[in-house]
Design a binder for these strands. Structure first.
Lengths: 244, 244
DNA sequence: CGCGTTTTGTTCTCACGTTCACAAACTCCT
DNA sequence: AGGAGTTTGTGAACGTGAGAACAAAACGCG
């Protein structure tokens, strides 16, 4: 896992920086499409919604791709960031759980343009196995492993209800997938070496609610007479139901 | 915005803690439904996927709700966290942009059980104005302000294509909304005092791709001959298209 | 009643991330 | 060629968060 071919870049990019690189990439693409050939850290930072010092420090972790007194070449920097992230070629992706959300994800056209390609859709519900989304058929869940091997899939997306998510994750890991994007509202247990990222609507809304309730003391500070029985439901429907 | 009625809790809960409270809330609900009356920090931490020291420190920011030698009363702690977050009563929410994703969000049943209630769906496309999702009709976008006032909405969800998101955000702010959950892949500019949280599929996938490409040097290290023209597309379809 | 056991709440230390501020490096103009 | 003006890259200061470790508090039992 060592001995890189060329241009040994500094090997430790901070996690916080990694999380911002995709934002810079998108901002650069936007600038590029607007016909901008060169930009300063100030401009790019504004487009990305961060401050310029942070931007410069982030970029400095990948190397010195700017020119003092001038700024950054948009195309060049864009390619360098794409290469660093690893999206200079498409990553094959499978989506498991074709309910409302899975359906929306399958139709999401931003995949292709941002370095990903959906190669398979899977669902346990036999009623879905006839259907097609875009030009992809929905396959039975037990075909996960052959499909993963066939397309050399490394990234899996879980869009099932919460109660099914752990089993899906286990199967993905078993099939060789080592990066999982989880939309189901549950904590996944995975072995060492497998990355899981979580996207959780309820959590985001609750964080907003927290701040909102400090902003407007009059609205939500009215504490109900007693603890309501149903605050949070560990509901199965979780991410969604099975079909639209 | 001072002078709280009772039990003045420490006023500065760290942001990192706030982001975990919803996870604890869900774990507690799960324990509660499993019939557990009491739990230790160790158990709860395991259920929430964090370590117990962090959990205890987080909870200590809200007050002393545990009993040494015993642990936490599940129901009591659940209510205290819900109250701290501000989800002891439902927050009215509007969703703008009823494409694939907006449709999925509108059908998301976890809203209700987690402290939120969708009170209106809006879209600029007249073809949608006849349709109904669940029992909610899709309204024209220009009815945002009256609907926000009518239902005292404080939280807005943007599920439009990227090119429309800023205009929607401006309208939301104009209508009095001060918390926005943005699914469109674009950076929103909002005035001071307005909170924006971003959910971005492409970014999450790209972060996974970054780590994946360091795990399997053989897969994505094959650098293409030259910078590909289409790495990232600042595409309009962005979050999705207009209808399923 | 006192002692051992359990588990919380908190303190201390270290690592990480952000921001400031400035030297180094480049361009442009005279 | 040289100096003024820009803009990057980075060192240093600061703030926030994570984890270890332990004292304080509750319980149970003899």
């Amino acid at each position: 896992m060592t001995a890189r071919t060329s241009a040994e870049t500094a090997r430790d990019i901070p996690e916080a920086t990694v999380a911002r690189l995709p934002v810079y990439l998108r901002a650069l693409t936007s600038l590029s499409e607007a016909g901008t050939a060169t930009c300063s850290s100030e401009e790019l930072a504004a487009a990305a919604g961060v401050n310029s010092a942070k931007l410069r420090k982030d970029l400095s972790h990948l190397g010195s791709y700017g020119t003092r007194g001038v700024g950054y070449d948009v195309e060049y920097l864009r390619y360098q960031i794409a290469r660093e992230i690893g999206v200079t070629q498409d990553w094959p992706v499978v989506i498991v759980g074709i309910g409302n959300l899975g359906h929306a994800l399958a139709n999401f056209s931003g995949f292709r343009s941002r370095g990903f390609r959906v190669v398979a859709l899977l669902d346990a519900d036999p009623r879905l196995h006839d259907t097609t989304i875009g030009d992809l058929p929905v396959r039975p869940f037990d075909q996960l492993e052959p499909l993963v091997h066939k397309h050399a899939v490394a990234i899996g997306v879980i869009a099932t209800p919460a109660h099914a998510a752990q089993a899906v994750a286990d199967a993905m890991v078993g099939a060789g997938i080592r990066s999982i994007l989880n939309f189901a509202p549950t904590v996944l247990a995975v072995p060492e070496g497998v990355d899981v990222r979580k996207v959780d609507l309820s959590i985001e809304l609750q964080i907003l609610a927290y701040h909102e309730s400090r902003k407007t003391p009059g609205v939500a500070d009215v504490v109900p007479p007693a603890a309501r029985p149903e605050i949070d439901g560990v509901d199965d429907d979780a991410a969604e139901e099975v079909i639209a």
